[in-house]
Protein backbone atom coordinates (compact mmCIF):
# COMPACT_ATOMS: atom_id res chain seq x y z
CA UNK A 1 0.00 0.00 0.00
CA UNK A 2 1.62 3.26 -1.07
CA UNK A 3 1.68 6.07 1.45
CA UNK A 4 -0.87 8.68 0.26
CA UNK A 5 1.24 11.75 1.05
CA UNK A 6 4.91 11.91 1.60
CA UNK A 7 7.23 14.90 1.53
CA UNK A 8 10.82 13.84 0.97
CA UNK A 9 13.54 16.33 1.81
CA UNK A 10 11.51 19.22 0.45
CA UNK A 11 13.26 22.59 0.28
CA UNK A 12 11.81 25.71 -1.28
CA UNK A 13 12.76 29.37 -1.61
CA UNK A 14 10.91 32.37 -3.02
CA UNK A 15 12.70 34.68 -5.38
CA UNK A 16 12.59 38.22 -4.07
CA UNK A 17 14.33 41.42 -5.14
CA UNK A 18 16.86 40.99 -2.33
CA UNK A 19 17.74 37.43 -3.32
CA UNK A 20 16.16 34.04 -2.57
CA UNK A 21 14.09 33.77 0.59
CA UNK A 22 14.19 30.17 1.85
CA UNK A 23 10.86 29.09 3.39
CA UNK A 24 11.15 25.30 3.66
CA UNK A 25 14.32 23.34 4.38
CA UNK A 26 14.70 19.56 4.24
CA UNK A 27 11.10 18.95 5.30
CA UNK A 28 10.00 15.32 5.73
CA UNK A 29 6.39 14.43 6.49
CA UNK A 30 4.64 11.08 6.00
CA UNK A 31 0.91 10.65 6.18
CA UNK A 32 -0.75 7.25 6.27
CA UNK A 33 -3.93 6.50 4.33
CA UNK A 34 -6.95 7.96 6.14
CA UNK A 35 -4.86 9.78 8.73
CA UNK A 36 -5.33 13.33 9.91
CA UNK A 37 -2.21 15.44 10.28
CA UNK A 38 -2.14 18.94 11.69
CA UNK A 39 0.73 21.30 10.94
CA UNK A 40 1.36 24.12 13.41
CA UNK A 41 4.16 26.67 13.53
CA UNK A 42 4.99 30.34 13.99
CA UNK A 43 3.39 32.77 11.53
CA UNK A 44 5.13 33.18 8.24
CA UNK A 45 6.96 29.86 8.54
CA UNK A 46 5.81 28.57 5.16
CA UNK A 47 2.69 26.62 6.12
CA UNK A 48 0.70 27.91 3.17
CA UNK A 49 3.61 27.16 0.84
CA UNK A 50 3.31 23.59 2.05
CA UNK A 51 -0.34 23.39 0.98
CA UNK A 52 0.43 24.76 -2.47
CA UNK A 53 3.23 22.24 -2.93
CA UNK A 54 1.00 19.30 -1.99
CA UNK A 55 -1.81 20.59 -4.20
CA UNK A 56 0.64 20.72 -7.10
CA UNK A 57 0.13 24.46 -7.59
CA UNK A 58 3.89 24.90 -7.09
CA UNK A 59 6.89 22.63 -7.44
CA UNK A 60 9.56 22.44 -4.75
CA UNK A 61 13.09 23.57 -5.57
CA UNK A 62 14.48 20.39 -4.05
CA UNK A 63 12.99 17.12 -2.86
CA UNK A 64 9.70 15.58 -3.93
CA UNK A 65 6.08 15.48 -2.93
CA UNK A 66 4.60 11.99 -3.36
CA UNK A 67 0.90 11.46 -3.62
CA UNK A 68 -0.58 7.96 -3.95
CA UNK A 69 2.74 6.53 -5.17
CA UNK A 70 3.44 9.25 -7.77
CA UNK A 71 5.53 12.41 -7.70
CA UNK A 72 3.33 15.50 -7.81
CA UNK A 73 4.21 17.72 -10.75
CA UNK A 74 0.89 19.42 -11.46
CA UNK A 75 -2.56 19.85 -9.88
CA UNK A 76 -4.69 16.74 -9.77
CA UNK A 77 -8.38 16.06 -9.29
CA UNK A 78 -7.77 13.81 -6.27
CA UNK A 79 -7.08 16.82 -4.08
CA UNK A 80 -9.63 18.96 -2.24
CA UNK A 81 -8.84 22.36 -0.73
CA UNK A 82 -10.51 24.73 1.72
CA UNK A 83 -9.16 28.04 2.99
CA UNK A 84 -9.74 30.53 5.79
CA UNK A 85 -11.77 32.55 3.29
CA UNK A 86 -14.63 30.27 2.19
CA UNK A 87 -14.40 31.73 -1.37
CA UNK A 88 -17.97 30.89 -2.31
CA UNK A 89 -19.17 32.27 -5.63
CA UNK A 90 -21.79 34.94 -4.92
CA UNK A 91 -23.68 34.42 -8.17
CA UNK A 92 -24.34 30.75 -7.42
CA UNK A 93 -26.66 29.15 -4.90
CA UNK A 94 -25.11 27.14 -2.07
CA UNK A 95 -25.99 23.91 -3.88
CA UNK A 96 -24.36 25.10 -7.13
CA UNK A 97 -21.30 26.20 -5.18
CA UNK A 98 -20.89 22.75 -3.69
CA UNK A 99 -21.33 21.15 -7.11
CA UNK A 100 -18.58 23.29 -8.70
CA UNK A 101 -15.75 20.70 -8.48
CA UNK A 102 -17.98 18.10 -10.15
CA UNK A 103 -18.11 20.39 -13.19
CA UNK A 104 -14.31 20.30 -13.43
CA UNK A 105 -13.37 16.79 -12.37
CA UNK A 106 -14.14 14.06 -14.87
CA UNK A 107 -16.81 11.77 -13.48
CA UNK A 108 -19.64 9.58 -14.69
CA UNK A 109 -22.28 11.19 -12.50
CA UNK A 110 -25.46 12.47 -14.12
CA UNK A 111 -26.79 15.91 -13.26
CA UNK A 112 -29.25 14.53 -10.72
CA UNK A 113 -26.62 12.28 -9.14
CA UNK A 114 -24.33 15.28 -8.70
CA UNK A 115 -27.14 17.19 -7.10
CA UNK A 116 -27.98 14.28 -4.79
CA UNK A 117 -24.36 14.03 -3.73
CA UNK A 118 -24.19 17.74 -2.92
CA UNK A 119 -27.51 17.70 -1.05
CA UNK A 120 -26.42 14.71 0.98
CA UNK A 121 -23.18 16.46 2.03
CA UNK A 122 -25.01 19.68 2.89
CA UNK A 123 -27.41 17.70 5.08
CA UNK A 124 -24.44 16.05 6.78
CA UNK A 125 -23.02 19.42 7.86
CA UNK A 126 -26.43 20.74 8.91
CA UNK A 127 -27.21 22.96 5.92
CA UNK A 128 -30.39 21.20 4.88
CA UNK A 129 -32.90 23.79 3.69
CA UNK A 130 -30.20 26.29 2.70
CA UNK A 131 -29.42 24.73 -0.70
CA UNK A 132 -31.03 27.52 -2.71
CA UNK A 133 -29.76 30.43 -0.62
CA UNK A 134 -27.03 32.76 -1.81
CA UNK A 135 -23.74 32.75 0.12
CA UNK A 136 -24.40 36.33 1.28
CA UNK A 137 -27.52 35.11 3.09
CA UNK A 138 -25.51 32.72 5.29
CA UNK A 139 -23.47 33.32 8.42
CA UNK A 140 -19.69 32.92 8.41
CA UNK A 141 -19.85 29.48 10.02
CA UNK A 142 -22.46 28.26 7.54
CA UNK A 143 -20.40 29.51 4.63
CA UNK A 144 -17.39 27.63 5.93
CA UNK A 145 -19.54 24.48 6.22
CA UNK A 146 -20.57 24.88 2.57
CA UNK A 147 -16.92 25.42 1.65
CA UNK A 148 -15.99 22.14 3.40
CA UNK A 149 -18.70 20.33 1.43
CA UNK A 150 -17.29 21.73 -1.80
CA UNK A 151 -13.79 20.57 -0.90
CA UNK A 152 -14.86 16.92 -0.53
CA UNK A 153 -17.77 16.66 -2.99
CA UNK A 154 -15.57 14.96 -5.63
CA UNK A 155 -14.31 12.40 -3.07
CA UNK A 156 -10.67 13.55 -3.03
CA UNK A 157 -8.00 11.23 -1.67
CA UNK A 158 -6.36 14.14 0.05
CA UNK A 159 -8.04 17.07 1.76
CA UNK A 160 -5.92 20.15 2.40
CA UNK A 161 -7.32 22.61 4.93
CA UNK A 162 -5.52 25.94 5.25
CA UNK A 163 -6.75 27.46 8.53
CA UNK A 164 -10.40 26.92 7.58
CA UNK A 165 -11.71 27.83 11.05
CA UNK A 166 -9.33 30.73 11.71
CA UNK A 167 -11.81 33.54 11.11
CA UNK A 168 -14.69 32.07 13.13
CA UNK A 169 -15.73 32.85 16.68
CA UNK A 170 -14.83 30.30 19.38
CA UNK A 171 -18.26 28.62 19.65
CA UNK A 172 -18.75 28.28 15.91
CA UNK A 173 -15.23 26.93 15.65
CA UNK A 174 -15.89 24.16 18.16
CA UNK A 175 -19.11 23.30 16.30
CA UNK A 176 -17.15 22.95 13.09
CA UNK A 177 -14.52 20.75 14.76
CA UNK A 178 -17.36 18.39 15.62
CA UNK A 179 -18.60 18.61 12.02
CA UNK A 180 -15.10 17.65 10.83
CA UNK A 181 -15.25 14.53 12.99
CA UNK A 182 -18.69 13.67 11.61
CA UNK A 183 -17.51 14.13 8.04
CA UNK A 184 -14.48 11.98 8.64
CA UNK A 185 -16.54 9.08 9.91
CA UNK A 186 -18.73 9.26 6.78
CA UNK A 187 -16.16 10.11 4.12
CA UNK A 188 -12.76 8.49 3.84
CA UNK A 189 -10.00 10.99 3.14
CA UNK A 190 -6.49 11.73 4.25
CA UNK A 191 -6.38 15.21 5.72
CA UNK A 192 -3.69 17.81 6.19
CA UNK A 193 -4.75 20.72 8.38
CA UNK A 194 -2.78 23.93 8.69
CA UNK A 195 -3.71 25.78 11.84
CA UNK A 196 -2.66 28.32 14.45
CA UNK A 197 -4.88 26.79 17.08
CA UNK A 198 -3.16 24.14 19.24
CA UNK A 199 -6.43 22.94 20.77
CA UNK A 200 -7.82 22.47 17.30
CA UNK A 201 -4.79 20.44 16.25
CA UNK A 202 -5.07 18.15 19.31
CA UNK A 203 -8.83 17.77 18.96
CA UNK A 204 -8.78 16.89 15.26
CA UNK A 205 -5.47 15.28 14.37
CA UNK A 206 -3.79 11.89 14.78
CA UNK A 207 -0.42 13.54 14.49
CA UNK A 208 0.68 17.13 15.02
CA UNK A 209 3.79 18.40 13.23
CA UNK A 210 5.44 21.51 14.65
CA UNK A 211 7.37 23.47 12.04
CA UNK A 212 10.40 25.49 13.04
CA UNK A 213 10.83 29.16 12.18
CA UNK A 214 11.82 30.06 8.60
CA UNK A 215 13.23 28.18 6.77
CA UNK A 216 10.85 25.61 8.19
CA UNK A 217 11.61 22.01 8.87
CA UNK A 218 9.72 19.44 10.95
CA UNK A 219 10.92 20.36 14.42
CA UNK A 220 8.70 18.10 16.49
CA UNK A 221 6.06 15.44 15.87
CA UNK A 222 3.40 14.56 18.42
CA UNK A 223 1.14 11.52 18.20
CA UNK A 224 -2.30 12.30 19.55
CA UNK A 225 -3.80 9.19 21.14
CA UNK A 226 -7.16 10.44 22.29
CA UNK A 227 -9.17 7.82 20.40
CA UNK A 228 -11.67 8.29 17.59
CA UNK A 229 -14.80 9.57 19.27
CA UNK A 230 -13.46 12.78 20.74
CA UNK A 231 -15.59 15.30 22.56
CA UNK A 232 -14.62 18.87 23.45
CA UNK A 233 -14.38 17.75 27.11
CA UNK A 234 -11.49 15.44 26.16
CA UNK A 235 -9.40 18.58 25.71
CA UNK A 236 -9.52 19.13 29.46
CA UNK A 237 -8.18 15.73 30.50
CA UNK A 238 -4.68 15.58 32.01
CA UNK A 239 -3.37 13.81 28.91
CA UNK A 240 -4.61 16.50 26.54
CA UNK A 241 -3.42 19.29 28.79
CA UNK A 242 0.05 17.71 28.79
CA UNK A 243 0.06 17.50 25.02
CA UNK A 244 -1.01 21.13 24.69
CA UNK A 245 1.77 22.20 27.08
CA UNK A 246 4.33 20.28 25.02
CA UNK A 247 3.09 21.83 21.79
CA UNK A 248 3.06 25.32 23.27
CA UNK A 249 6.61 24.90 24.39
CA UNK A 250 7.65 23.65 20.95
CA UNK A 251 6.09 26.72 19.34
CA UNK A 252 8.09 28.93 21.69
CA UNK A 253 11.21 27.07 20.65
CA UNK A 254 10.28 27.55 17.01
CA UNK A 255 9.82 31.26 17.62
CA UNK A 256 13.23 31.35 19.30
CA UNK A 257 11.72 32.40 22.62
CA UNK A 258 12.69 29.23 24.57
CA UNK A 259 15.88 27.14 24.55
CA UNK A 260 15.59 23.87 22.61
CA UNK A 261 17.26 21.62 25.24
CA UNK A 262 14.44 22.14 27.73
CA UNK A 263 12.04 20.56 25.24
CA UNK A 264 11.56 17.19 26.92
Amino acid sequence: MPVPIELRAVSHAYKTDSGPLPVLRDLNIKMAEGSFTAVVGPSGCGKSTLTRLIAGLMRPDEGQVWLGGEIVTSPRATVGMAFQNPVLLEWRSILQNVMLPLEIVKNKLSKSQREDRARQLLALVGLEGFEDKRPSELSGGMRQRASLCRSIVHRPQVLILDEPFGALDAFTREDLWQTMHDLRSEEPFTCLLITHDLRESVFLADEVVVLSGRPATAQYKLTVDLGDNRKIDDLYTAKAVDMLATLRHQIEVAQGRAPAEAAE
Binding site: L100, E103, R150
Partner: peptide
Amino acid sequence: LEPEYRDILRSLGASQFIVFWKIALPK
Protein backbone atom coordinates in the same frame (compact mmCIF):
# COMPACT_ATOMS: atom_id res chain seq x y z
CA LEU B 1 -9.21 38.34 -8.07
CA GLU B 2 -8.14 36.75 -4.76
CA PRO B 3 -5.67 33.90 -5.36
CA GLU B 4 -7.90 31.48 -3.44
CA TYR B 5 -10.60 31.83 -6.10
CA ARG B 6 -8.09 30.74 -8.70
CA ASP B 7 -6.75 27.97 -6.47
CA ILE B 8 -10.04 26.19 -5.80
CA LEU B 9 -10.28 25.42 -9.52
CA ARG B 10 -6.58 25.31 -10.40
CA SER B 11 -5.98 22.70 -7.69
CA LEU B 12 -8.45 20.44 -9.51
CA GLY B 13 -6.48 20.74 -12.73
CA ALA B 14 -8.81 23.28 -14.40
CA SER B 15 -7.36 25.26 -17.32
CA GLN B 16 -6.84 29.05 -17.26
CA PHE B 17 -9.79 29.38 -19.60
CA ILE B 18 -12.12 27.46 -17.24
CA VAL B 19 -10.97 29.65 -14.35
CA PHE B 20 -11.72 32.74 -16.45
CA TRP B 21 -15.09 31.48 -17.65
CA LYS B 22 -16.42 30.09 -14.36
CA ILE B 23 -14.96 32.58 -11.89
CA ALA B 24 -13.08 35.62 -13.20
CA LEU B 25 -15.66 36.68 -15.79
CA PRO B 26 -18.81 36.50 -13.63
CA LYS B 27 -16.94 38.03 -10.70
